[in-house]
Structures are given as structure tokens and as C-alpha cells.
């Protein structure tokens, strides 16, 4: 039995096609990531799998239960953390946890072992109202609430959006730990750097899954040589690079532009010279290995072929 199965799920909102023929399978105990920018359809997919929305077509199963027929059974066994902070802001940390434990017919004590690691981090603030917590603590509390009934499948819709880098790391450490408890986890994120921690990832854009791969497998498929190019004026650099006839692709990343060149006709030194000629200074051109984001950009650019 699979943890999660989605078969050709499509869903429209008016004329907008939020999901188009989405199919994938998640093994039990697998940490599966859905990576894609805002508006890719991630939340709609989560809502359909958590029985909150009905698909226009297609079918799905969670823990072997049909997402339409057996929705009550699914609701008893999954944990769901929506993308937006969805706890009671006027209740304290402790009250929130308690109410969700009661809603799931359990107590905090019963499954405390599961949430201990993360709850200990927010416990000093347990008398504080949830609305007054920082972004990272809010998400930790939300994760505790989603875990309090020891779900078999955990749906986390962008758990790290709006969270500081340290809390992001804490949350991901927690997910890796939960995997050891044999909990199936479906997690979505717009941050490509988090993808490396998943067992497998699905790249999503415009309601379609572009590719399903392991992070390592994805990087391996990126066969073109990749260069990180820097200079003092990065925005001018981007236009200059894109204007060069030998540049295949050029995308702006955090501190450098990632560039692929057309079939080895241009040497990096020549590119640097070209840029120097255009008045750039402090030019750096270094070879790098592809990240998930590079793969995503690459796939997204070629999506017509898919």
C-alpha cells in the first residue's frame, strides 16, 4: 500500500486551471517534496488530498483510502498544516495544543514523545497567545498541533514560508526525525534549497508536475556546464549576459547569475573579457554544480516539450 496516490487529478477555478493531470505516488514513510513557485497549484493539490476540495477529475488515495468516498477515515488519520497560520491567535500556545488534542480524541501526554523535540523549543512561551508568537514559533506550534494525534500521513503546505533560517532548519530536522517514525510526509515549499532534504521531489509549475526525481538524480540530469557569473553591477550584468549570442540561459540567483553556454563555443575567459569590455569590474566566472533550482529553471523553460 502506498502512503499517497494521485491519479490524473485536475481542478479548475472558473477558467483558471489550478491542476492539470497531476499524478504521483508517495511510499509509506517517505519524505516527498513538492517544489514550485507561488501559484503553481500546490495548495489546491494539498486541499484535494486532504479531502477539503473535490477534484474535477482524477482519483486519489491516502493510506489506501479513497479521497472522496472515505474522506471521514482519512480525516481521522492525517495531520494537516495549511500554508497560512491556522491556529487560534487569541488562545495561548498550550490552549491551542490542548484543543487540537481534544479534537483528535487524544491528550498532549499520550503522544508527547512525538512532539517533544519541537515543543520544548516553544514551551517557555506556552502561556503566550499564539498571535503574539514569531513566524518560526507559530509554525513550530502548528506542526505540534498537526502531530499531536500521531498521524500516519502528514501534509505540510509551505511550512517554512515566512520563517527565519534557524527555525527553518529546526523544522526540517524535525521532518527528517518524523520520517524515522514511519510517518509519510508530503511537504511543499517554494524554497529550492530545502528540496535536497527530501527523499524525492516533484517539480511543479502552472498546475503541472514537471518531473519527479530524487534530488541527486535531478542534479545528475543537468548535463550542461554551469557557470556562476558575478560582477559589481548585477542587474546590468544580467542584461549584458542575456544579450550575448553564445549564452544559452541566464538566471538571477542569490549572489550570482547562473549561466549555461551554447555547446562549448565560448570559453569562460572570453566571456570575462566580453564583460570587461562592457565596463564591468570585479568579474568572476566559476564552474558550479547544478542545484534543484537550476534544474527547475531548466525544466520550466522547456515545459512545452513535457
Amino acid at each position: 500500500m502506498k502512503g499517497i496516490v494521485a491519479q490524473n487529478i485536475s481542478r479548475k477555478f472558473g477558467r483558471v486551471e489550478a491542476l492539470r493531470n497531476v499524478s504521483f505516488e508517495v511510499n509509506q514513510g517517505e519524505l516527498f517534496g513538492i517544489i514550485g513557485p507561488d501559484g503553481a497549484g500546490k495548495t489546491t493539490l494539498f486541499r484535494i488530498l486532504t479531502t477539503l476540495l473535490l477534484a474535477d477529475s482524477g482519483a486519489g488515495e491516502v493510506d489506501g483510502f479513497d479521497i472522496v468516498k472515505d474522506f471521514r477515515k482519512i480525516r481521522q488519520r492525517v495531520g494537516y498544516m495549511p500554508g497560512r497560520f491556522s491556529l487560534y491567535q487569541d488562545l495561548t500556545v498550550e490552549e491551542n495544543l490542548k484543543i487540537f488534542a481534544t479534537v483528535f480524541n487524544t491528550t498532549i501526554e499520550e503522544n508527547y514523545g512525538l512532539i517533544r523535540d519541537i515543543y520544548e523549543q516553544i514551551e517557555p512561551f506556552k502561556k503566550r497567545r499564539a498571535g503574539a508568537l514569531s513566524g518560526g514559533m507559530k509554525q513550530k506550534l502548528a506542526l505540534c498541533c498537526a502531530l499531536i494525534h500521531k498521524p500516519t500521513v502528514l501534509f505540510l503546505d509551505e511550512p517554512t514560508t515566512g520563517v527565519d533560517p534557524i527555525s527553518r532548519r529546526d523544522l526540517w530536522e524535525m521532518l527528517v526525525k518524523l520520517k524515522k517514525e514511519q510517518i509519510t510526509i508530503l511537504v511543499s515549499t517554494p524554497y529550492m534549497d530545502e528540496a535536497g532534504l527530501c527523499d524525492r521531489i516533484a517539480l511543479m509549475q502552472h498546475g503541472r508536475l514537471l518531473k519527479i526525481e530524487t534530488p541527486a538524480g535531478l542534479a545528475k540530469q543537468f548535463t550542461d556546464a554551469l557557470w556562476a557569473v558575478r560582477s559589481l553591477s548585477m542587474s546590468k550584468l544580467l542584461t549584458d549576459l542575456r544579450r550575448h549570442p553564445q549564452v544559452e540561459t541566464c538566471y538571477a540567483f542569490g549572489d550570482a547569475h547562473h549561466v549555461t553556454l551554447k555547446a562549448g563555443l565560448l570559453k569562460p575567459e572570453e566571456l570575462a573579457a566580453y564583460l570587461a569590455g562592457l565596463g564591468h569590474s570585479d568579474i568572476g566566472v566559476e564552474p558550479i554544480t547544478a542545484t534543484v533550482e537550476d534544474c527547475f529553471m531548466n525544466l520550466a523553460a522547456n515545459k512545452i516539450e513535457l
Binding site: 486541499r47 486532504t50 479531502t51 477539503l52 471521514r72 480525516r75 481521522q76 492525517v78 494537516y80 498544516m81 495549511p82 497560512r84 497560520f85 491556522s86 491556529l87 487560534y88 491567535q89 487540537f100 479534537v103 483528535f104 480524541n105 498541533c145 498537526a146
Partner: peptide, 13 residues
Amino acid sequence: ELGTMEVLLVSPM
């Protein structure tokens, strides 16, 4: 509006 209904719906209640 605040999204808590979403969480409550995905519960045995």
C-alpha cells in the same frame, strides 16, 4: 477567514 476551519475539517470532529 482565519483558516482554522480548514484544520478543523481535516479532523475526526
